[in-house]
C-alpha cells in the first residue's frame, strides 16, 4: 500500500465532499467514506507514489509507505509544509530510526478544504 490514510488522524476535512487529498490525486484513486467521514485509497495498485495527497493533507494524516516488494517497512518520509507556503521540510527516518531533514524552497498554492463539483456528485442509477 503506497499511501495510507491514518483513520485516527483523518477528520474527513469536516464535511467536505471533495477533500484536498481526493482532489489532488492524478489517478482519481482516493475516495471518501461519507458515513465514517474518512478518506481512503480505494485503488492502491494504481498509485504512482507522486505524493500530492500527502503534501496537501491539513492533518498530516496520510503516510507514505513503500510497497513491501521495494523494501522493509519502518522507514518514513514525511513532508511538513511551512505556513508561509514557500518551503517544505522533508523528514526522513531510516529503519534504524536515524532521521535527516531537508528544507526545500517551493511555491505552494493554498488549497481550499472543499470544492464544488460542476453538476454535483449525485449517485447514479446504473440500471438505466
Amino acid at each position: 500500500m503506497p499511501v495510507w490514510v491514518d483513520p485516527e488522524k483523518c477528520n474527513g476535512c469536516h464535511g467536505a465532499s471533495q477533500p484536498p487529498c481526493l482532489r489532488m490525486c492524478p489517478g482519481d484513486l482516493i475516495v471518501k467514506d461519507h458515513t465514517a467521514n474518512k478518506a481512503y485509497l480505494k485503488y492502491p495498485e494504481d498509485c504512482w507514489d507522486c505524493l500530492p495527497c500527502v503534501k496537501v493533507c491539513p492533518e498530516e494524516a496520510i503516510e507514505f509507505h513503500l510497497s513491501y516488494q521495494f523494501g522493509s517497512k519502518g522507514a518514513k518520509l514525511i513532508p511538513h509544509i511551512h505556513k508561509t507556503h514557500d518551503q517544505i521540510t522533508w523528514e526522513l527516518i531510516d529503519t534504524q530510526g536515524n532521521s535527516e531533514t531537508f528544507t526545500i524552497r517551493t511555491k505552494l498554492m493554498p488549497v481550499e478544504l472543499d470544492e464544488k463539483v460542476e453538476g454535483g456528485t449525485q449517485t447514479l442509477d446504473f440500471s438505466i
Binding site: L51, L66, F70, G71, L77, P79, L92, D94
Partner: peptide, 9 residues
C-alpha cells in the same frame, strides 16, 4: 520522493 524513501528503507 520515493527514491529517497527507498534508500532509507
Amino acid at each position: 520522493p520515493s527514491m529517497v524513501l527507498y534508500w532509507a528503507a
